[in-house]
Design a protein around this nucleic acid. Structure first.
Lengths: 196, 196, 196, 196
DNA sequence: CTGTAACCGAGACGGTACGTCACGTCTTGGC
DNA sequence: GCCAAGACGTGACGTACCGTCTCGGTTACAG
């Protein structure tokens, strides 16, 4: 984690209020217009306290975003790889279409380019675990014979997530369910999966 | 264009110097640490002049980036759709791996989320024209029977560009040529193209 | 004069419009808020033209003020020195209470401290001629026996004008007629004049 | 005072450094060329801090000037009204001839015309207290029979200060001691004082 | 009676300073 | 002994004018 995970002395009240204020302000004024000053003021917390526990606004937002993210996009295994991928990608798209999570993640990504620690935290705490989950789910599909054993699974995952990021960072309208379904179908077909 | 494209009286010298300074500073200190003040100082141009012709730092960078982009990633038509896509995507990946263009584009994308005018300019002047070129190239491939006539071409283009954006915004290592080749092959296969 | 006195080619229309705009703006927004840009815009004249004929805003204002001043505060000689001084001082006080002349003169004085040319122009074109007139009027009064022959006339003039400047620069309420009358009477008495 | 006189948290170090820098720069480059930026830079203080405690450059200068003024021009009471007035006026003239106080006060006066708060502060904190002192000193002289009981004391004070302001704002050479002596003598005589 | 040169309006230009904002650090005093 | 409150130095923001400088267009003398 980018934040020191805990301290006996850390005030949970301050932590909660800070994260809540951060997301709230993000929803109201957009990520870029949120300042540490404003978060502190809204949370009734001093700037010093924020800087004590997080290195930057991005880190606050990442923690807030992550807390909101985890249950929103579960990886299920119903035995139907296409359906599971559709479910997962749809959930991700839906989350990114939702305020404040969409703007928050966009903002976090925008800081990734000049904040090495944040970049590391995003990749290690957020992206790679879920990437690995997706690969793992495909691997099981391979074991079940739904896709060839030698399929290039990381490439497939990139082909799934890529268009989601593409639309999000360019602020294009997010995929609807049919588009997600087509995407999943194409990706599976590109791996040489049997048609469903 | 986000800038009024011309004014008889506009000083070409100032324009050139500004764009050059913007890219130079971006290479040296990173997009986020470039300020309009610094661009003005380096270019020997007044801040007022920059604000007269561009609404924001992002707009300056976009113009500079666009000028550098256009010849770097041409769309060729050699008759071999796979080869042409490889060529194009490789060029794009290579440009994004190159300072100052990679950082510049990442920075531009980071402003897209809070700058509507810039978002519009990026989409209309940069993304959509090239997206359309790619679709058009695929359409011709369809006419030549290299891919099915009813293929979902926009989806294919998103599957091509998506992973490039995905890696770029997450600061993952860019694709190498083999990965690009695999990507292109998978996308074509997902469309139902005859194997080459 | 601080301005080059004339040129055959000089546009009288521009000159008039400039002076008028300067006084008008001074009345509306106060001397300090008047800018050369605004004068030029209001007068329908280019900044270049203003700078061609006047070295500074203060010089424009001085010319405008002087044109308005000269007939406003004549030196009469009715044979009664006390009455004539009252008339003159009252006229001066009244002019300085009048927009835009009061603010304009206050503004000019405020520039005198950092503009040597303007200081010289104010003294030579405005202050000293009128100072000399006052001394001369007192000298004639001395010849007529209204005040002693050896009176310190410059000191007397300073005692007359001084309080007017004092109130003006401190933005105290200007003298009313009775106060002017008392002032004149005191000054004459201080010179050893016979009581009237 | 134009400034809130105190705040428990205000840094005395910053306040001192600011006032000192303001006077120093005023001496070196003249009031008009002093900028808040330069004061901040020289004092090692942030502009924000200056604007937190003073509303304008003029207010800074006024505080600096006032601190320097108070002991420079005391009102003594030796029992000899003429001598005391000479002493006081000479001290004032001398202060106004001294850098940076002369330029500073001239500059302050120049802002009085477009800054109502400053005008009020100058009058209330600077001019009127001293004016009242002078009237009071004259009143005691009246009690002692040095001047008539019904003399117009405020008018007398204006006749004393007026010429000092007159010369100062017009940048005429300041009065020498003999001129001050003559002025005082004339003013007292104008009140009907017994000759000394 | 027609060049041609000065003047004109317009406004872009390189600058300086403005007054504001947010940063991240530091200090104080109350709980 | 922790924390809110907020002052502090720093530095960039976007704006306003400065005074200089081209631009074309117009005007009015001089050849």
């Amino acid at each position: 984690m980018i934040t020191s995970p805990s301290s006996r002395r850390r005030s949970e009240r301050s932590r909660k209020a800070t994260l809540e204020a951060a997301l709230g302000l993000c929803a109201e004024k957009g990520y870029a217009r949120v300042t540490v000053e404003a978060i502190a003021a809204r949370a009734g917390v001093s700037k010093k306290t924020i800087y004590r526990w997080w290195p930057s606004k991005g880190a606050v937002m990442l923690e807030a975003f992550t807390e909101g993210l985890l249950d929103a996009t579960p990886f299920t295994d119903t035995g139907d790889i296409a359906a599971d991928l559709r479910t997962h990608i749809c959930a991700a798209v839906r989350l990114l279409s939702t305020s404040p999570f969409g703007p928050a993640y966009a903002g976090i990504l925008s800081e990734v380019h000049h904040d090495d620690a944040l970049a590391k935290a995003v990749r290690e705490d957020l992206v790679e675990p879920r990437f690995a989950c997706a690969v793992e789910r495909l691997r099981r599909a391979g074991e079940q014979g739904q896709i060839p054993a030698d399929a290039d699974l990381p490439l497939a995952v990139e082909m799934l997530y890529g268009p989601v990021y593409y639309r999000h960072v360019l602020r294009k309208p997010p995929q609807d369910e049919a588009t997600v379904a087509a995407l999943v179908e194409h990706v599976l077909r590109s791996l040489g999966a049997r048609e469903t």
